[in-house]
């Protein structure tokens, strides 16, 4: 196991061990929520961190997948696993169509168009009451489960979430180092040059978009199975902003950043609120502190901190090499 993989393996293993030490399933479920949020944030990271496309409508991917699986497995009466596969396929198909619209723009235009696309789906979920249940949502979404894999048990569901998270980390880690990943960053930094040297920037961005959609859909699937309930709130602008917040806090463009950001947000939201009544203020304060002290996120911030600490240590004195004087 290489030194780069080790920290991830340790963290995932620690998360997987929570059910063994936890006194109540509450903490197990909390870790599941962190894992699901992290998968979503990793998906958005492809767009924001590596493609340089800031999206404020990421929630459309998990939202579509969650609604599809919820509708198919409750109203449609299909078994949850098949419904999940259909939901993934359906989300990717719709995402491909959305890409045709969204990828015509970059920068601020991209922010607005992704937000608009997400709002369209949100509006459909909210107002197409006969299909989506309106703001009451769809409830009673069954978790897939069998005697081999009883997913209704919190610890088993956690392990499923962690397995998907591990898969996401491995796949995205490989992708970022692959030629396509490098080309993607090239298209982020110098799109015109990339174009000039013969890369099809649009197609590179399309690949990134679909990859983000795929991991977003995976997170949405797990979300629907975890909560066993979907409602339009999961596609509200605030939901998209929350994923972006995780990414900004953790550090966009890094592999560990989304994981750390997701843990931070989920824990502040759900754990700190037990003891602190004004938890929303705490959340805001934390982000102000992060932005002031580490403008590019926790992971890059700490990398920089390590660099400074190294510099603080007195550098070893340069060894003097006696040289004979030329005029000697």
């Amino acid at each position: 196991m290489s030194a780069r993989v080790l920290p991830y393996a340790v963290v995932l293993a620690a998360m997987a061990m929570v059910p063994l030490v936890s006194t109540s399933p509450f903490y197990v479920n909390l870790v599941s929520q962190i894992a699901i949020a992290a998968i979503g944030a990793l998906g958005l990271n492809v767009l924001v961190g590596h493609a340089g496309l800031n999206s404020l409508g990421f929630a459309v991917f998990p939202g579509l997948a969650a609604y599809l699986v919820a509708w198919l497995s409750t109203v449609g009466g299909i078994d949850p696993v098949t419904a999940g596969i259909f939901a993934l396929a359906g989300t990717l198909a719709v995402s491909a169509l959305f890409a045709l619209v969204a990828l015509r723009t970059t920068g601020l235009g991209f922010v607005m168009i992704t937000m608009a696309l997400c709002q369209i789906v949100w509006g459909a979920a909210y107002r197409w009451t006969s299909v989506t249940g309106g703001d009451n949502g769809l409830s009673g979404v069954p978790r897939p489960g069998a005697s081999l894999l009883p997913l209704e048990r919190p610890e088993v569901f956690l392990w499923l979430c962690l397995a998907v998270l591990a898969l996401a980390l491995v796949q995205l880690g490989h992708f970022f180092e692959s030629p396509l990943g490098v080309a993607l960053r090239g298209a982020r930094d110098q799109p015109r040059r990339m174009n000039a040297v013969g890369y099809d920037v649009w197609r590179i961005r399309f690949a990134a978009w679909m990859l983000a959609a795929a991991w977003g859909a995976a997170a949405g699937l797990l979300y629907a199975w975890y909560h066993q309930f979907v409602s339009p709130h999961m596609m509200a602008v605030t939901a998209s902003a929350e994923v972006l917040l995780m990414l900004v806090a953790g550090g966009a463009g890094t592999l560990a950043g989304p994981l750390i950001g997701a843990a931070l947000v989920v824990l502040l939201k759900n754990l700190a609120s037990i003891w602190i009544e004004r938890w929303v203020m705490l959340l805001g304060f934390t982000f102000v502190v992060i932005v002031v002290l580490m403008p590019d996120g926790i992971v890059p911030g700490f990398t920089r901190l390590r660099g400074w600490l190294r510099r603080l240590k007195p550098a070893p004195a340069p060894t003097l090499v006696p040289r004979e004087r030329a005029d000697g």
Partner: peptide, 11 residues
């Protein structure tokens, strides 16, 4: 928020 409500109920 429905999702937060669920977590609070679990809590």
């Amino acid at each position: 928020q429905p999702a937060t409500t669920k977590t609070r109920a679990q809590e």
